[in-house]
Design a binder for these strands. Structure first.
Length: 880
RNA sequence: GGGCGCGUAGCUCAGUGGGAGAGCACUCGCCUUACAAGCGAGGGGUCGCAGGUUCGAAACCUGCCGCGCCCACCA
């Protein structure tokens, strides 16, 4: 096979007719990408006069490799940035990666685990060094994947959440928030992962319905006894009260008294609290302030002591028979002990209830009283909500804004300290006498005996929240920041609307004095398999983007993803669809090959409208509509619709009709052929530009061969030329296509081979203004002109007053033809009946808009005309 | 428990007030000199169910059934 690159014209580009018959993406993609980067097309210039367009990439975690979800996310961003580049914007797409604190630390700890080592064996410094090594390896792989995808990112501006600049930004904003009293340290109930041994924020906790056991336990004895229900019997060791609702008549006499807590000998008070739901269980709640967030609040209201009964690994620390038991061992042990005392009143099993799990390791979270750092989200979340409410930030699709509001309007304070080693260390120092000093980026930490820095690091999302401006050099007022902030659009999945988007809004508005981090949030869905199922390793339906890129090309992979991407909706993909996308790329390849073999040109202006034949005018008119539709759909982030419009224009209009119609013109030669070469070149030129944002590689390869220009990457985006919209030509072509299709249908029904010539007389073409196209119609329908011995043996009634009489002596299948005509007659009759019924309806004629009524009348007339011709054709048919 | 969304062809989905569509799959016929990763033709749907609004409903309203997602401190 001859590859496109093996034969080249003297200027180094492949010659058109030397393109191979099949597109081979591998070599093209590698060569194209190197060209783009070395030419600097992706490097943004803050001093440019062009209007700015900027996107910061949602930084992938350094730990992983890019999965198909990233491929979708990147495809959308790359499509937008390439579109804007062509539209004349100064585009910055800023790449980078996230240090992904807990996730990365887990990965490296697992690696150490295989060598029977723990992070403590290495010590903090050596461990962090080890993580940096891992980051270098893993991160490099991700950058390679981005190149394979074709990401037009500005590689000169690549950032990492742990690099010096971003660490400085983290420290700066921490200090500012601290000084503004929006960061505080407090002892609170937090979500604790007993495996990762760290605090978690609310969003790092996933809830799931687990089977448990609801047990009713009698506290106290005799008349003063009270029964409480719990799913977590082991926490009773830490109970410091029983709570009932103040209005609950059953327990009113007990409020203010004390009961003995079984197994402990302690006496605890019975308190009245509004929080208790009298209708649930027994209406009495055991209160464990140190191990339940509700109970903690009840405890605060009633000044109850908090008894911590488990350590950080959720092992019981209360001296006695249960000491040293894990929480799940302690639970049955305690239930057994209570049962022996006859205190178990009822057991309900299984009992479904929601349990929180660590989003990283799936271990059940243990609510735990702990001293941690928090962000006071009140004013920040308010501002984040208002920015969307007042329209400064648009969320696409708008329906997802409701979820956003539900989140920011009910946000709890954000626990930001993590008991990890990998991350930004909290810039707070503690003095020997209890001093607390928050250290800014340009300040020296306090020196002297006894001072030590906080051991904890910040939640990963703390630095992620600064991403839109920290990557541009904040806190300095850099040219990039002046020029490219706020970013134009944030492209990400709806799954991290809360994790990330809401936090960027909070910190962006705060740090940038009320200027939002982005103007638009364009949310896409999750990639799913061909049956709409979630991709998961255990299900075996995971698609590796590199695998598809290797086998079908990056363009095919991107087109498959973009074809399913509408705002907020999930994107189903399958290998068959990727093959279809590959076929589409190949179709473009061959269309261009045809054009080049036939001398299509793109030089100079197009011939005037008046000089062109109807077919040329038609395809140019269609092109204008396509450009308008593509613009409209891009503006709404409806990539699936963009792809649909271009797919059908390219395949149906250009390839199946225009190219076929142009063949007889081109082979005839003369000035009309010259015009067609110009129009064909122009249409392909424009089509390749329109497709370039979505499928950059094949379009650039073809466009440069076609136009002899440098690259389509920085070519101008097509605009609508209203002068080229030609309704008359479009109507003509619709009529022409109808005639051709009708004849083809006849031929197919009759089992005629494509090469088999049939003589035919065409009449009535003038009725629909296509008499000038008779030669074309004969060419496409493979009809010969009637000779001297012509005798019509079959008649085709084409809607619109066109009749085709065919001489099919010796070939016609009378039964097939009769069946076809009967079928047509049935359809026409049904149509006529429907139209008459409508027109007989006085209410319809009276109330429906005039054009609607007129349309029905036209349809009726057409149906009646069809019926007449079909009747005549049936009559003329030889009897079997 | 609260909220959001979805049920249209075998599959995945467009269509949101006036003739039921696409891709893939399927059937038939073709190597017709750009492309068999192709070309031509075709079959296939009481638009989840039941009411209502309207001259007219797949679309708007109400209820029901089924499915999915998000949020969630009733022990």
């Amino acid at each position: 096979m001859t590859d496109a690159t093996e034969t080249r014209t003297p200027d180094g580009r492949p010659a058109g007719s030397d393109l191979s018959a099949q597109y081979q993406p591998g070599e093209v993609e590698q060569r194209r990408y190197e060209t783009w980067v070395s030419a600097g097309y992706f490097t943004a210039d803050p001093k440019s006069d062009k209007p700015p367009f900027s996107i910061v990439i949602p930084p992938p975690n350094v730990t992983g490799s890019l999965h198909i979800g990233h491929a979708l996310d990147h495809t959308i961003q790359d499509t937008l940035t390439r579109l804007k580049r062509m539209q004349g914007y100064e585009v910055l797409w800023l790449p980078g990666m996230d240090h992904a604190g807990i996730a990365t630390q887990n990965v490296v700890e697992r690696q150490l685990g295989s060598q029977r080592l723990s992070r403590h064996d290495l010590g903090r410094e050596a461990f962090v060094e080890r993580v940096w090594q891992w980051k270098a390896e893993s991160g490099g792989a991700i950058l390679g994947q981005m190149r394979r995808l074709g990401d037009s990112v500005d590689w000169t501006r690549e950032r990492f959440t742990m690099d010096d600049g971003l660490s400085r930004a983290v420290q700066t904003i921490f200090k500012r928030l601290y000084d503004d009293e929006l960061i505080y340290r407090a002892e609170r109930i937090i979500n604790w992962c007993p495996r990762c041994l760290t605090a978690l924020s609310d969003i790092e906790v996933e809830h799931s319905e687990d089977d448990g056991e609801l047990i009713s336990i009698r506290y106290g004895d005799g008349a003063m006894a009270i029964v409480v229900a719990t799913t977590r019997a082991e926490t009773m060791l830490g109970d410091t009260a029983v709570a009932v609702h103040p209005d609950d008549e059953r327990y009113r006499h007990l409020v203010g008294t004390e009961v003995e807590l079984p197994l402990t000998g302690r006496r605890i008070p019975i308190v009245a609290d509004e929080h208790v739901d009298p209708s649930f269980g027994t209406g009495a709640v055991k209160v464990t302030p140190a191990h339940d967030p509700n109970d903690f609040e009840i405890g605060q209201r009633h000044h109850l002591p908090s008894l911590t009964i488990m350590d950080e690994r959720a092992v019981v620390t209360v001296p006695g028979p249960f000491e040293g038991l894990d929480r799940y061992e302690a639970r049955p042990a305690i239930v057994d002990a209570l049962r022996e005392q006859g205190r178990i009143v009822a057991e309900k099993r299984p009992y479904q209830h929601a349990v929180g799990h660590c989003s990283r390791c799936k271990t059940a979270v243990e609510p735990r009283l702990s001293l941690q750092w928090f962000v006071d989200t009140g004013p920040l979340a308010k501002a984040a909500g208002d920015a969307v409410r007042d329209g400064r930030v648009a969320i696409e699709p708008v329906e997802l804004a409701k979820r956003y509001f539900a989140w920011v309007d009910n946000m709890h304070d954000w626990c930001i300290s993590r008991q990890l080693w990998w991350g930004h260390r909290i810039p707070v120092w503690y003095g020997p006498d209890g001093e607390v000093v928050c250290v800014g980026p340009d300040e020296q930490p306090p020196a002297g005996e006894g001072w030590r820095q906080d051991e904890d690091v910040l939640d990963t999302w703390f630095s992620s929240a600064l991403w839109p401006f920290s990557t541009m050099g904040w806190p300095e007022r850099t040219p990039d920041l002046e020029r490219f902030y706020p970013t134009s659009v944030l492209v990400t999945g709806y799954d991290i609307l809360f994790f990330w988007v809401a936090r960027m809004m909070m910190f962006g508005l705060y740090a940038m004095d009320g200027v939002q981090p982005f103007n638009v949030v364009a949310l896409h869905g999750m990639v799913r398999d061909g049956h709409g199922k979630k991709m998961s390793k255990s299900f075996g339906n995971v698609v590796d983007p590199l695998d598809w890129i290797d086998r079908y090309g990056a363009d095919a992979t991107r087109f498959t993803l973009a074809r399913g991407a509408n705002p907020g909706s999930d994107v189903p993909i399958s290998e068959e669809w990727c093959q279809g996308s590959r076929n589409f790329c190949n179709k473009l390849w061959n269309a261009t090959r045809f054009a080049l073999m036939n001398g299509a040109t793109v030089a100079g202006d197009l011939p005037a409208e008046s000089e062109l034949n109807a077919v040329d005018r038609w395809i140019l008119s269609r092109l204008q509509h396509v450009v308008a539709e593509v613009d409209e759909h891009f503006a709404g982030y409806e990539f699936a619709k963009v792809c649909d419009v271009l797919y059908h224009f390219a395949w149906d209009d250009v390839c199946d009709w225009y190219v076929e119609l142009s063949k007889p013109v081109l082979s005839a030669g003369g000035p009309e052929a010259d015009n067609t070469r110009r129009v064909l070149g122009h249409v392909l030129d424009q089509l390749l530009r329109l497709l370039h944002p979505v499928i950059p590689f094949v379009t650039d390869e073809l466009w440069t061969v076609l136009t002899r220009a440098e690259t389509v990457t920085i070519a101008a985006w097509p605009t609508v030329d209203p002068a080229r919209i030609d309704d008359a030509a479009e109507e003509e072509l619709v009529a022409l296509q109808k005639v051709v299709t009708e004849v083809r249908r006849f031929r197919s029904d009759q089992g005629l081979r494509p090469g088999q010539r049939v003589s035919a007389a065409l009449t009535g073409l003038g009725n629909v203004g296509i008499d000038v196209h008779e030669t074309l119609i004969r060419s496409l329908a493979r009809l010969d002109a009637p000779g001297p011995e012509f005798a019509a043996t079959a008649t085709l009634a084409v809607t619109g007053g066109v009749t085709v009489d065919l001489d099919t002596r010796g070939t016609i299948d009378v039964a097939a033809e009769r069946a076809r005509l009967l079928k047509d007659r049935a359809a026409a009759e049904k149509e006529a009946v429907q139209c008459r019924a409508k027109l007989d309806n006085a209410a319809f004629v009276g109330k429906a808009p005039e054009p609607v009524v007129a349309k029905i009348k036209d349809r009726l007339a057409a149906a009646e005309a069809d019926l007449a011709r079909i009747a005549a054709a049936l009559e003329a048919l030889p009897s079997a």
